[in-house]
Amino acid sequence: MAAAAAAGAGPEMVRGQVFDVGPRYTNLSYIGEGAYGMVCSAYDNVNKVRVAIKKISPFEHQTYCQRTLREIKILLRFRHENIIGINDIIRAPTIEQMKDVYIVQDLMETDLYKLLKTQHLSNDHICYFLYQILRGLKYIHSANVLHRDLKPSNLLLNTTCDLKICDFGLARVADPDHDHTGFLTEYVATRWYRAPEIMLNSKGYTKSIDIWSVGCILAEMLSNRPIFPGKHYLDQLNHILGILGSPSQEDLNCIINLKARNYLLSLPHKNKVPWNRLFPNADSKALDLLDKMLTFNPHKRIEVEQALAHPYLEQYYDPSDEPIAEAPFKFDMELDDLPKEKLKELIFEETARFQPGYRS
């Protein structure tokens, strides 16, 4: 834990890192770190609560700039109880001085990944967590956004079992017609939660990839272990087919990539493993919904509104309290091709509203 900075004593240090967030945020305490930044909790002297502050230093890398800009653009436009918001952003007053960006968010005690390492969940908890994931996802999908990296560590939890989806750095506007060349190379989302079509096709992607990830998360809540822990690309596919069985001819016809289709045709026939054999203690309604989410063919996979209306979630289902976005989200430009200098300018502009004396 960093010592509390005395008023006016300059930035606090946390594990050798400068955290320049005073005077409003003090009493910093280390939480963890990701690929390009550290997260601390801090005391907000204005709202009198502890908050989470993520320090991001992305400006050396085009990919990190892209992810940072995506996350900020999306989260500043989203407003939903099951999606983490941005409360404040701290950065230098000029673009030349801006080396880091500090993002202030609600402090959540833990995440689903940490929880599943230590606790076996009751059916009631599984049901409530799944409902909140789908409630947040309904809003995301209504904005025409794909999260693309749903996994237990991106689901934040607090002691009252509130759940918030975080990390929109890989999110995209849904565009089933656009052929994202190089899709697989830039697709760094965790393999275990990846839909089979991501490994088999490169053309376009749809909201059904997020539903697949939610199915993987439900299976993990039922058993405290990942359902498809593939060691590499082909191993991942083999794990999936080992449980779902061989795809039907109709399902194979959806695979545009001939090499991928021929690979699947070359494999020995596998039978589907019954879900109640894998999860003998699970609620039968939970397994019915799991089956509809972990469907090989993305066109037959359940959609988020149908999933919310499934009998497993009937005690929570309330369409009048499951809000959607006001308007579909649009990125003005494809960020993939922009140089990091341009992305830095866009991050600077996007964060201006939090600067003292800002006038829109």
Results as ranks from 00 to 15, higher is better:
A2F: 05
A4M: 08
A5Y: 00
A5M: 12
A6P: 05
A7P: 02
A9Q: 13
G10Q: 11
G10P: 05
P11D: 10
V14W: 09
V14K: 07
V14Y: 09
R15N: 09
G16D: 06
G16R: 14
G16C: 06
V18A: 04
F19T: 12
V21W: 07
V21M: 14
G22A: 10
P23W: 00
P23F: 00
R24D: 03
T26H: 10
T26L: 11
L28P: 09
L28Q: 15
S29L: 13
S29M: 08
I31A: 01
G32H: 03
G32V: 14
E33P: 03
A35G: 08
Y36D: 03
M38R: 09
V39H: 09
C40Q: 06
C40P: 00
C40S: 14
S41Y: 15
A42P: 03
Y43R: 06
N45R: 07
K48G: 14
K48Q: 10
K48C: 12
K48R: 13
V49R: 12
V51P: 00
A52G: 01
I53L: 04
K54I: 12
S57M: 10
F59M: 04
E60V: 14
E60T: 00
E60W: 08
H61T: 02
H61K: 02
H61G: 02
Q62E: 08
Q62M: 08
Y64L: 13
C65E: 05
R67G: 05
L69S: 07
R70V: 06
E71R: 00
E71N: 00
E71T: 00
I72D: 03
K73S: 13
K73T: 08
I74V: 13
I74G: 10
L75S: 05
L75G: 04
L76I: 00
L76T: 00
L76F: 01
L76Q: 14
R79W: 09
R79S: 14
R79Q: 10
H80G: 06
H80A: 06
H80T: 02
E81K: 14
G85Q: 08
N87D: 03
D88R: 03
I89N: 13
I90T: 03
I90F: 14
R91Y: 01
P93Q: 15
T94H: 08
Q97C: 08
Q97T: 07
M98W: 04
M98S: 02
M98H: 11
K99M: 14
K99P: 08
D100E: 14
Y102H: 07
I103Y: 07
V104Y: 04
Q105M: 04
Q105P: 04
Q105L: 13
L107F: 09
T110F: 00
D111I: 00
D111C: 08
Y113V: 10
Y113D: 07
K117T: 07
T118I: 09
Q119M: 07
L121C: 10
N123V: 07
N123G: 10
D124S: 09
H125S: 13
H125L: 14
C127Y: 13
C127E: 12
Y128V: 08
Y128T: 03
L130W: 01
L130M: 14
Y131V: 07
Q132L: 15
I133D: 07
I133F: 14
L134M: 15
L134C: 05
R135E: 09
G136W: 15
K138P: 09
K138Q: 13
Y139E: 12
Y139N: 15
I140A: 11
I140K: 11
H141S: 07
S142N: 01
A143P: 05
N144Q: 12
N144R: 12
H147E: 09
H147S: 10
D149V: 15
D149E: 14
K151M: 14
P152Y: 03
L155F: 07
L156D: 10
L157G: 12
N158K: 15
N158V: 12
T159R: 13
T159A: 09
C161F: 14
C161Y: 13
C161V: 06
L163C: 03
L163P: 11
K164T: 06
K164P: 10
F168T: 01
G169H: 03
G169K: 04
L170K: 07
R172F: 02
R172V: 06
A174E: 13
D175N: 13
P176W: 09
D177Y: 14
H180K: 08
T181M: 07
G182E: 13
F183V: 14
A189F: 08
A189Y: 08
T190L: 10
R191A: 09
W192P: 14
W192N: 10
Y193L: 13
R194M: 11
E197D: 15
I198M: 08
I198H: 04
M199F: 10
M199C: 03
L200F: 08
S202A: 12
G204Q: 13
T206N: 13
T206L: 13
S208L: 10
S208W: 05
I209G: 09
I209N: 14
W212G: 13
S213E: 09
V214F: 08
C216M: 09
C216P: 08
C216K: 10
I217L: 12
A219S: 14
E220P: 09
M221R: 10
M221F: 06
L222R: 07
S223C: 14
R225H: 11
F228A: 00
F228Y: 15
P229S: 13
G230N: 00
G230R: 00
K231Q: 04
K231Y: 02
H232I: 00
L234V: 11
L234Y: 12
N238F: 09
N238Y: 14
H239E: 10
H239C: 09
I240A: 04
I243F: 15
G245E: 08
S246N: 07
S248T: 14
S248Y: 14
E250Q: 01
L252C: 08
L252A: 08
N253M: 13
I255W: 10
I255E: 08
N257H: 07
N257V: 10
N257R: 12
A260N: 01
A260Y: 00
N262R: 08
N262C: 01
Y263A: 04
L264C: 03
L264H: 01
L265K: 03
L265C: 07
L265H: 02
S266W: 01
S266T: 00
P268S: 13
H269G: 08
H269N: 14
N271R: 12
N271T: 09
K272D: 01
K272T: 02
V273E: 15
P274A: 07
W275R: 15
R277Y: 07
R277G: 10
L278S: 04
F279H: 00
F279Q: 03
P280W: 11
S284V: 10
K285F: 10
A286N: 00
A286Q: 03
D288Y: 15
L290Y: 10
L290P: 14
D291N: 13
D291Q: 11
K292W: 03
K292Q: 05
K292F: 07
M293W: 01
M293Q: 07
L294Q: 14
T295M: 07
T295A: 08
N297A: 02
H299L: 15
K300V: 07
R301K: 14
R301W: 03
I302N: 15
I302H: 10
E303G: 09
V304Q: 12
V304S: 05
E305C: 02
E305S: 01
E305H: 01
Q306G: 02
L308Q: 12
L308T: 02
H310V: 06
L313V: 01
E314R: 01
E314D: 13
E314A: 04
Y316H: 01
Y316N: 15
D318M: 10
P323D: 03
A325R: 07
E326A: 14
A327Q: 09
A327I: 00
A327S: 12
A327M: 07
P328E: 04
P328M: 07
K330F: 01
D332L: 09
E334L: 01
L335V: 05
L335I: 11
D336G: 03
D336Q: 05
D336A: 11
P339E: 13
P339L: 13
K340D: 10
E341T: 06
L343I: 08
L343D: 12
K344D: 11
E345G: 00
E345A: 01
L346M: 14
L346R: 02
F348Q: 12
E349R: 04
E349A: 00
A352L: 07
R353F: 05
R353Y: 12
P356V: 00
S360Q: 14
